[in-house]
Amino acid sequence: MRHDRSPDGDLPPVAGPHLHVLSVVSMGLLAIFLAAVLALVVADVGYTDWETVVGLFRSREVMAAIRLTAVTSTLTLMLVVVFSVPAGYALSRYRFPGHTLADTVVDLPIVLPPVVIGVSLLVFFTTAPGRWIEGMGFRPHSVAAIVLCQFFVAASYAIRSAKAAFDSVDRNLEHVALTLGCTRAQAFRMVSLPIARGGLIAGAIMAWARAVGVFGPLMVFVGSIRMKTEVLPTTVYLELTIGRIEVALAVALVMLAMAFIALAFIHWLSSGRRWWGL
């Protein structure tokens, strides 16, 4: 997976659109997709009204849900990054017995409907190991439980794209780094990681986006207790069940704004030439 700007800056710059078949078709399809998404957003905006949106920010419950969504999705994102980068690297670089099996198992949570993850967690916590974890202080109505649901739904995407990102790194570059005196860890940090950065960030964005949108497993495993386990997707559902469609859509618009800000922030954060923080 190539980023539009390589860390070494040795690729030709991305061109502007030209009038030939490929550019017309690709730009046209892009435009259709953007128009379709915008049409949905405009329909949402049209159904709700400004006062409803403003009213949300006066509701203690909705503010709590916004806060909880921000906190849990960020915690999930951190946890996902901590897992997915090393796990993706391991899947990409090492061959071990059961590698294909491991590769397949990583994809399972993507294939399953999310609600199955919720039911599975619910059932797991009735088994002996589950009870033991509960005995250690884990509670089903807690931030930890929300993060757990989000993690299971989101982690696969990040591991999958981390693996793809590391697969795309030319291993000769790592070997050159090793011959120039780098340790394996240094080669990872100074060569592989910067090159894979684009793919890793794409994976993290996808994981975060999944985490924010998680709903099915939360309804089953964590519940929707106001001020305690209610996140924004839960709010949308709850408002729909009592027919307050305009409020549900207003919440959706708030989620849209949050996502927009967060994605813009991540893009900005990753726009430097180096892998930030490392």
Binding site: H141, G223, I225, K228
Partner: peptide, 13 residues
């Protein structure tokens, strides 16, 4: 505290 959901899911919980 209230935990909402459809009644079937609540029963499972």
């Amino acid at each position: 505290e209230l935990d909402y959901g459809d009644s079937g899911t609540n029963l499972i919980k």
